[in-house]
């Protein structure tokens, strides 16, 4: 069965990744998946103020997810919301596993994720972008983090739901996956999926994440190799 936009069940939307898009950030990346665009910028490690937030054992990873007011058809009120606060938190825990925070006690690594355009899968696009931006900023990481959502539409498992599909079904499963250590650092579920469904959908996500990992590696290498050949 073909999907609304003509994709196969295990076919992602077109993915574009670019590293080093912002001049003033220590590391930055833009990830475009279909019509969803996320830009991540990383600053630091740098001094953390106010001082009482400092951790004497390790650096603090500070993730902030925000949506541009013009990112959806209906204007998004700027500033933190219940939703953006939650996504910031899950993004932080998805990234924290790979980032070496022990090397910079008392410091902070700031990760800002801006959704320029939203069409389903904004948190997963944000995590992909943040992972690239962290690597670009020269921060020690044990792995890259990849992330994609899958769900069930009309009784069929499909990967990377678009905005239209999300409206029909309401059940999807965003996953963040570490391709080297094969661990899962984010698993959320919206809607209703049975145990068997979750297993099937999860498998699909992991296959998608492995594809995304290749694109991430290419994007990172491209930034430096393009300049090498100049």
């Amino acid at each position: 069965m073909a999907r609304k936009d003509g994709r196969k069940a295990d076919e992602m939307r077109e993915v574009k990744m670019e590293v080093g898009v912002l001049r003033n950030a220590d590391g930055s990346a833009r990830v475009q998946i279909g019509k969803t665009i996320a830009v991540a910028s990383v600053f630091g490690p740098r001094e953390l103020h106010p001082k009482h937030l400092q951790d004497n054992e390790k650096a603090v990873l500070n993730c902030i997810y925000m949506m541009a007011p013009f990112s959806t058809t209906e204007r998004v009120r700027p500033g933190p919301s219940r939703r953006s606060h939650e996504i910031s938190l899950v993004t932080k825990s998805a990234l924290e596993k790979v980032v070496n925070l022990k090397d910079h006690p008392k410091a902070v690594i700031d990760v800002y994720i801006l959704i320029e355009q939203a069409n389903a899968g904004t948190r997963t696009a944000g995590i992909n972008a943040a992972s690239l931006a962290l690597a670009d900023a020269g921060i020690q990481m044990s792995d890259l983090v990849t992330s994609i959502a899958s769900g069930k539409v009309d009784g069929e498992y499909v990967i990377d739901l678009s905005g239209d599909e999300e409206k029909i079904t309401g059940c999807d499963l965003p996953v963040a996956y570490l391709p080297r250590s094969k661990e899962i650092t984010l698993l959320q579920m919206d809607g209703d999926l049975s145990k068997a469904d979750v297993k099937g959908v999860l498998k699909m996500c992991i296959r998608g994440c492995e594809k995304l990992h290749k694109i991430q590696v290419d994007a990172l290498k491209k930034k430096w190799e393009a300049e090498t050949s100049k």
Partner: peptide, 10 residues
């Protein structure tokens, strides 16, 4: 010094 490697690369 040619080969560029990324975090987590074997």
């Amino acid at each position: 010094e040619k080969k560029i490697v990324v975090p987590g690369e074997l």
